[in-house]
Structure formats: C-alpha cells, structure tokens
Design a protein around this nucleic acid. Sequence first.
DNA 1: TTACACATATGTAAATATCATATAGTATAA
DNA 2: TTATACTATATGATATTTACATATGTGTAA
Lengths: 125, 125
Amino acid sequence: MCKTCGCSFRSRNFGGIERFVEPCILLLLSKNPSHGYSLMDDLEKHCGEKVDVGNLYRTLRRMEMDGWVESDWSKNESGPDRRTYTVTEDGLEFLKSAVSSLSRTDKTIHRLFDRFKETFPSEQL
Amino acid sequence: MCKTCGCSFRSRNFGGIERFVEPCILLLLSKNPSHGYSLMDDLEKHCGEKVDVGNLYRTLRRMEMDGWVESDWSKNESGPDRRTYTVTEDGLEFLKSAVSSLSRTDKTIHRLFDRFKETFPSEQL
DNA sequence: TTACACATATGTAAATATCATATAGTATAA
DNA sequence: TTATACTATATGATATTTACATATGTGTAA
C-alpha cells in the first residue's frame, strides 16, 4: 500500500522508468549548461518529471563521477553561487544509448498494450 | 559500470520499468491459471521479459499478499508438485490501473523522443 | 529582523533488483 | 543403482534506486 496516496500501489511511482531523469538532464544540458535548481524546474516543465531535490543533486554528482557532465561554480550576483553543469562527449554518447534503450522499453510496453487490448477489447488505455 | 556486460550503465537494465513483470503476470494469468516455472517461460516468450527465477517466485508471493492472485498446490504426475496461481478481481483491477499508469509513462517517453529528435535530427532512435 | 526564495547537500530508511545457493521430485541414460 | 539433467519452489545476502526528512548558507524585500 502506497503511503502517500493510499492507493493499492506499493510505491507511488508504479510503472515509472528506472533512472529516467538522467537522459532528461543530459538532453536539457545539451541545449544549455545549467545548474541543479534550474534543472529541477525544467525537468518538471519540459520533461514531466517531478524530481526529489536531494535526489537530483546526488544524481548530478554521480553523473559527474561517471564523466557524463562537468561542473564549475559560477558567481551569482542576486543569490547564492551556482554549480553549473555542462554535458561531455561521453554524456552525449550515453544519452544516445539511453534513448535506444528506452526505444526498446517502449516496444515492450506496446507489446503489453496489444495483448491487453486483445484480452480486454472493451477497456480503455 | 555494469558488472555483467562491462558497459557504462550502472545497472544492466537501464531504462527498464519498475515492477513491469506484475502486469505481465496478471495478463498471462487472466488467460490461464499457471505456475511459476511456466510463467517464467511465458514471460520471456510473450512479454519479452527475462525474469530472475528467485525474483519471480518472491513477486508471486508478494502479489498473493496483496490479494491480486490466489494459489493452490496441484499434483504433478511427471515432476514436482506445482503452486498454481489464479488472478483475482482485485488483480484485474490492478492490471487495469497499471496499464493506464504505463500509458502515462509511454507518453513521457515519447515526449523525450520528440525533444531528442528536435535536438539531434540526424540521430536514429 | 524576520521571512522567503534561491541554492546545494547529507542522513536514513524503504523498496526493488540481482546474484548465489538450497532443496526436492521425476525421468533417463550409463 | 548411480549419476545427471530437468522440473519446480524457495531463501540469503547484497547492491541499487527511490523516497522522505533535514541541514546549511546567500541574497532580497517587507
């Protein structure tokens, strides 16, 4: 039983994609270098991903360890300084393989949809 | 770094869907009652899911706890007895909500695909 | 000087997934 | 009759990922 909404799902995010934020972050960064706090907004606006703040920062540091992004502190006149992230070549490569991996996932989901429609023709997706 | 194949993914199953086996199992059971060992084959053949054996049995027991399936031992002349699973009404209801949850997930993936194609028009999915 | 938005970060626990191993019944070939 | 393989279910231990809570500090505006 889900603690947050009381529904029958054990975890809130049932059917969610493992580590989906990572390709999302890389795609955003491949347009413009950015920092954590800003990415948090962009992930929700542009990617439909509500990310836990703490998780986001930890993910960014982990991605830096993996060599997919690089960071530098940048001065901020009107507020605390920011750690600005840039995507690397390795990061772009990972993004591409992640996308094809997700493409396979997508096919798997649709395979389930097809079987579901076959078994329950009257049900909506 | 993935231990099994040496690729850059931290886990082998990058981009996989959280607890995807569960709706798959329920869909299979809604056609015919079945047992673990047989489901293992069917999940691979019909759903493209390679499931860890131990994980499968634990998942089935967990699903029974949740009231989505029921089990009974059935005699097997040509081998060890089998625990045969049947889907319940609650199980079918969960299947339906899981499918609509996955439908949302699918939209989220495609949103990423669209942005990816926009940013990298020459790349293949 | 208080409150609030911005900004980054860590501690801890829960949920899931992975890998290895245990146990036992039946069949069959040496 | 022994060894081997296949069928069948199950648990122990660990790793990974996610979720929730909390800490800390800067700048701005009331």
